[in-house]
């Protein structure tokens, strides 16, 4: 407690709440308001409508919701497997090679997404691997961009796992694979779920690489939102942004309710 006087504390609280409201409440509130605005010429919209949501949940926009959800699930699932595999394989290594490989798996998160997209275009626009214009290239772009985050989350979970659990399991006669399946993986399940959730959220909002590589038939929501706002349909863009945020939240809340019996003490 830094401020002791009653008025001082009240002033600080008022300041803090105002700051948070303007910085983080206002943007979300405004998007929400815009998504139901019929017309907005003054300080506040002049009338409300649900028309933009109707637009957002049909035709191209609905298709984009499907595309984004699919891309998010597939890319996150693949990234989860590969990230968990990498984190497990790195764990027993000696200090120096471990740190080196750790950096290697983290680097994709440091490279700008547009450059990742450009690289995929350059690499896969010619035979033998002609992926340009396919759905697969979008999935690959998303996988590359989120793989570092899944790897990071899982290896953080493994690092926090007390070594005794696995050692006791081993002393009781559990072979490596049995130990992995019955002890290690169940105990890091919360981290696996967190890793999947973060990857999924990042994939849902990905724009830089997608805008470089997407084929006409596989348009994700962020690309669609940009297209809408670029042609001046900003209320439709706001409504689609709300659909994006809400659908992401539903999936994340759903994931957070997966029962895990491994509650760390």
């Amino acid at each position: 407690m830094l401020v002791w006087s009653r008025t001082g504390r009240a002033l600080t609280w008022a300041f803090a709440l105002l700051l948070f409201a303007v910085l983080y409440g206002l943007p979300i509130g405004v998007i929400a308001l815009a998504s139901i605005s019929g017309q907005w010429n003054g300080v506040l919209p002049s009338h409300m409508t649900l028309e933009h949501y109707v637009n957002a949940l049909q035709g191209d926009s609905l298709e984009q919701l499907h595309v984004s959800l699919w891309t998010g699930f597939v890319a996150s699932a693949v990234a989860l497997v590969s990230g968990t595999w990498a984190a497990l394989a790195l764990r027993p290594l000696a200090r120096l090679p471990k740190r080196l490989l750790d950096v290697v798996f983290f680097i994709p998160s440091a490279v700008p997404s547009v450059s990742v997209g450009l690289g995929l275009l350059v690499a896969f626009s010619r035979p033998p691997l002609l992926l340009n214009g396919t759905t697969l290239i979008v999935l690959i772009a998303h996988f590359v961009l989120i793989s570092a985050f899944t790897y990071g989350n899982v290896s953080a979970g493994l690092a926090r796992l007390p070594i005794e659990f696995e050692q006791v399991a081993e002393s009781l006669g559990a072979r490596p694979f049995y130990r992995l399946r019955r002890v290690t993986l169940p105990l890091v399940t919360p981290y696996l779920i967190a890793a999947f959730s973060l990857s999924f959220a990042l994939s849902m909002g990905e724009l830089g690489a997608t805008v470089m590589v997407y084929p006409p038939g596989w348009v994700t929501m962020p690309v669609g939102i940009f297209a809408l706002s670029d042609r001046g349909a900003i209320f439709d863009a706001a409504a689609l942004t709300m659909v994006l945020a809400i659908s992401t939240s539903i999936v994340l809340v759903g994931l957070s309710h997966i029962p895990t019996r491994a509650s760390p003490r």
Binding site: G205, E206, F226, A237, T248
Partner: peptide
């Protein structure tokens, strides 16, 4: 976890 362009919009 929210897309960055939300704030710009």
């Amino acid at each position: 976890a929210l897309p960055t362009f939300l704030v710009a919009l």
